[in-house]
């Protein structure tokens, strides 16, 4: 791991890392190394602050998925792992939380595959009259996609937005979707 990455990691500890460097860090080849370093620093910090390391035994992937989806804690589910430990009361800055979970929680590769592993509350849960599939929908966080996958998906987004801008008669809204699709998430 070069100094720049280490610097980013350090900035992340203080929640001062910018998005670009975090992304660079996340796309770093040896994620194990990054993860190990992060965990070491966390442990050190926790020792210094006499706290409990949330890294151990805390499943943050659900919360992170929700963060990534911008749903906040609206669909917070009881998670025994979180409730049992003091870690549940930790208020982490969103950016650090996301970054940490990507590093620690999602496992090697940080790909979409493991990010969508857990059940996510069905969105239509509030509409019990829904006669259809009650099984949870697997959610894919855009941030979990690799570059090729993102490009693939954004092509569809754009084509749909194009149609929207021209077809649905919403004028500026359609255009806005189009432009937004061009830059979404990045």
């Amino acid at each position: 791991m070069d100094d720049r990455l280490r610097e980013t990691l350090s900035a992340m500890m203080d929640d001062e890392a910018d998005e670009l460097s975090v992304r660079r860090l996340l796309s770093h080849d040896s994620q194990d190394e990054v993860r190990a370093q992060w965990q070491r620093w966390q442990d050190v910090r926790d020792l210094m602050h006499d706290g409990h390391s949330p890294v151990h035994g805390m499943d943050v992937s659900v919360a992170v998925r929700e963060l990534l989806d911008g749903r906040g804690s609206a669909t917070a589910r009881p998670d025994p792992a979180v409730q049992d430990s003091k870690a549940g009361r930790w208020h982490w800055p969103a950016a650090a939380m996301v970054a940490m979970a990507l590093l620690v929680g999602f496992g090697a590769g940080a790909g979409w595959d493991s990010s969508g592993a857990g059940p996510v509350q069905p969105v239509t849960a509030a509409a019990p009259e829904t006669p259809v599939q009650d099984q949870p929908i697997r959610e894919i966080a855009l941030q979990g996609l690799d570059e090729e996958q993102w490009e693939y998906m954004s092509r569809y987004l754009l084509e749909h937005a194009q149609h929207n801008s021209v077809g649905a008669g919403r004028g500026a809204v359609g255009y806005a979707r189009l432009v937004s699709a061009n830059g979404v998430g990045y």
């Binding site: 989806d69 911008g70 979409w112 595959d113 969508g116 929908i137 697997r138 959610e139 894919i140 966080a141 855009l142 996609l145 090729e148 996958q149 693939y152 998906m153 569809y156 987004l157 749909h160 979707r177 937004s180 699709a181 979404v184 998430g185």
Partner: peptide, 20 residues
Amino acid sequence: AGPVTMPTGASKIGATTVYM
């Protein structure tokens, strides 16, 4: 299906859902 393997599931960007 192309050379890129796409995940199965839904992504949401605001009101827009992409389901693959």
